[in-house]
Simulated assay, not measured.
Amino acid sequence: MLLGEFNHSIDDKGRLIIPAKLREELGESLVICKGLEGCLFVYSQDEWESFVDKLETLPLMNKAARTFKRYFFGSASDSTFDKQGRVLIKPELREAAGLEKDVVLVGVQDHVEIWDKARWEEESDVSEEDMDAIAGQMEAMGIQI
Rank of each mutant, 00 (worst) to 15 (best):
L16D: 00
E24P: 03
L36M: 13
V42P: 03
G35L: 09
Y43I: 02
L55M: 15
L36Y: 11
E28C: 00
V52G: 13
C33H: 09
D46Q: 12
E49H: 12
Y43S: 07
L30R: 08
S50C: 07
A64K: 14
A65S: 14
L22E: 06
V42C: 01
K69H: 09
E49C: 11
E49V: 04
L40D: 00
F68P: 01
G38E: 04
L36F: 15
I32W: 02
D46V: 06
R66Y: 14
G27Q: 08
M61Q: 06
L16K: 00
Y43C: 04
K63M: 13
T57Q: 13
L22H: 02
C33E: 13
K69A: 13
G38D: 07
L40T: 02
F68D: 12
E25S: 15
S29Y: 06
V52K: 12
Y43M: 04
E37Q: 12
K63H: 09
C33N: 13
I18K: 00
Y43W: 03
L58A: 09
L40A: 00
K34V: 03
V42Y: 05
C39K: 09
E56P: 02
K21V: 10
I17Y: 04
L22G: 03
C39A: 03
A64D: 13
A64N: 14
E37R: 12
N62S: 08
Q45I: 03
W48I: 00
E28Y: 01
A20Y: 14
L30T: 07
C39S: 13
S44L: 12
D53I: 03
V31K: 07
F41E: 04
L40K: 00
D46R: 13
L30K: 05
V31S: 11
F68W: 01
K21F: 10
P19D: 11
E47S: 10
F41S: 05
K63A: 13
I17S: 11
T67G: 11
L26P: 02
K63E: 15
N62W: 11
L30E: 06
E49F: 07
L26H: 04
P19I: 08
V42A: 04
E56D: 15
K54W: 05
V31E: 07
R23L: 10
K34P: 08
L26M: 07
K69W: 01
S50M: 11
A20D: 05
E56G: 02
N62E: 15
A64V: 06
C39T: 06
E24Q: 05
M61A: 08
Q45P: 01
C39H: 05
E28D: 11
R23K: 08
L58Y: 08
L58T: 06
E24A: 01
K34H: 11
T67S: 14
T67V: 03
T67P: 05
W48R: 03
A65V: 06
S44T: 00
L40V: 01
L16G: 00
I18P: 00
C39L: 01
L40Y: 00
E25G: 08
E25H: 15
E47H: 04
A64L: 08
L22P: 02
I17H: 09
L16Y: 00
C33A: 15
P59Q: 06
E28N: 10
D46E: 15
R23F: 14
F68C: 02
R23P: 03
E49K: 13
